[in-house]
Write a protein that binds this DNA or RNA. Structure first.
Length: 205
DNA sequence: AAAAGTATCAACCGCCTCGTA
DNA sequence: CTACGAGGCGGTTGATACTTT
C-alpha cells in the first residue's frame, strides 16, 4: 500500500471545511481515525490542533481583556506554565493563545522592568554592569543577577518562568504539599481530583 | 518609500501519560 | 506485567503583519 504524503503548514479553507464536517460526523475524539476517514491529508495530531485552536465552536478570537489578563497572571502565579489548566478557566480561550499571550506579556514586562531599573535613582541596579554599589535592585533583585541589556533581562525572565524545573516544582507542590486553605480566598470548591475542581472564582464576583 | 526591527500567532516537534491488547 | 499507540501538553519555530527609522 502506498503511503499518502501528509500535508504540513497552514490550513486551507477547504481543509477547514472538510475537518469541520468530519468532526460533525465522527466527533472530536479518535483523531487518527478521523484524519484517515475524512480523506484529509493531515495526521490526527494536526487535525486535533486545528480544531482545538481554531475551528472549535465558541472560541473567542480577539484581544485578551483586562479581566482575562488578570486571571492569567494570577493562575500562572499559582500553577506556572500549565497552559491547558489555565485555558480551562478561560472559556473560549486556547492554551496556545494563552501561551502566546504570556510570552508577549512577559516580554513587555521584562522591558518595563529593565527600564524601571535603569532609570531608578534611589536604588542601584545590579543588573547593569555599570552599577557600582552593592545595593540591590528594587525589583526582583534576588532573582536577577548582573546583566547588560534588556534582552538579557528577557532571557532571565523567560528562563525563570518557562524552565522545566519551575514546572516540575509547581507540579510537585500541587501534588504533595498543597495548602487548600490558601485557595479559600477564591471560593474554590475542592473535589478529590484537581482536574475536576469547581472554580467559581471568576464568575462569582 | 524602503529597509530593518519587532510582535503576533499558527503550526510543528518531541516528550509524557494513559488506555488497551 | 509489558509494549504499543493515540491523545494531550508545553516548548519552539517560522511566516506574516505591523511599527519604527
Amino acid at each position: 500500500m502506498q503511503e499518502v504524503e501528509l500535508r504540513k503548514g497552514p490550513w486551507l479553507e477547504e481543509e477547514d471545511e472538510q475537518l469541520s464536517a468530519a468532526v460533525a460526523v465522527f466527533g472530536d475524539k479518535r483523531w487518527d481515525a478521523l484524519a484517515k476517514s475524512s480523506g484529509l491529508r493531515r495526521n490526527g495530531k494536526s487535525c486535533r490542533l486545528r480544531w482545538m485552536n481554531y475551528l472549535r465552536p465558541n472560541l473567542k478570537h480577539g484581544n485578551i481583556s483586562a479581566d482575562e489578563e488578570r486571571i492569567i497572571i494570577q493562575l500562572h502565579e499559582k500553577w506556572g506554565n500549565k497552559w491547558s489548566m489555565i485555558a480551562r478557566r478561560l472559556p473560549g480561550r486556547t492554551d496556545n493563545e494563552i501561551k502566546n499571550y504570556w510570552r508577549s506579556y512577559l516580554k513587555k514586562k521584562a522591558l518595563a522592568l529593565d527600564k524601571e531599573c535603569l532609570s531608578s535613582t534611589t536604588n542601584t541596579c545590579l543588573r547593569s554592569e555599570e552599577c557600582e554599589t552593592d545595593s540591590p535592585c528594587s525589583v526582583n533583585d534576588e532573582i536577577v543577577g548582573p546583566t547588560t541589556d534588556s534582552s538579557d533581562a528577557l532571557d532571565i525572565m523567560l528562563n525563570m518562568t518557562s524552565s522545566p524545573y519551575e514546572t516540575r516544582l509547581t507540579e510537585w507542590m500541587m501534588s504533595s504539599n498543597c495548602d487548600k486553605d490558601e485557595f479559600s480566598n477564591y471560593d474554590l470548591c475542592f473535589s478529590d481530583d484537581y482536574a475536576t475542581w469547581d472554580f467559581s472564582l471568576w464568575d462569582g464576583e
